[in-house]
């Protein structure tokens, strides 16, 4: 019974990232941070009110995606990990949207100015 001989194939693959790739992702994150700062100093309200926040969040989401996919190796992870990561944002979205659909639709009155 030599069923464990082929153990090498059981490993989760981990040889995808190299040092230049890590540094590349790092540079993307640094550029994103600088971009966030300068985008915040420009008044984008002429597009629509709150455009600055949207831009800031878009950059933050891009940075987060880079960190998750490559630093946290989600890109090469089993489906279950993908599911966990995506599901957590799905639950967050439910929490945000259900909370806000309450607060944003209250008439002025007892519970809300």
């Amino acid at each position: 019974m030599a069923e464990y001989e082929q153990h090498d194939h059981d490993h989760i693959e981990h040889d995808h990232m190299t040092i230049p790739k890590y540094i590349g992702i790092f540079l993307v994150l640094v550029v994103g941070t600088i971009l966030t700062y300068f985008a915040a100093t420009v008044d984008l309200d002429f597009i629509f009110p709150g455009a600055n926040t949207l831009v800031a969040l878009l950059i933050a989401f891009t940075k987060m995606t880079c960190v998750m996919l490559f630093f946290m190796h989600v890109y090469w992870s089993p489906r279950m990990i993908w599911l966990s990561a995506v599901a957590s944002f799905f639950w967050l979205a439910i929490m945000f949207s259900y909370t806000m659909q309450d607060y944003l639709t209250r008439d002025p009155g007892v519970f809300s100015p």
């Binding site: 966030t36 309200d45 800031a56 933050a60 987060m64």
Partner: peptide, 19 residues
């Protein structure tokens, strides 16, 4: 790190454009 990536613009930069 990711938490901070969101905290930084949401706390420090949100009103900077009409400073």
């Amino acid at each position: 790190d990711i938490v901070w990536i969101f905290l930084f613009p949401l706390l420090y930069l949100l009103g900077r454009h009409f400073m």
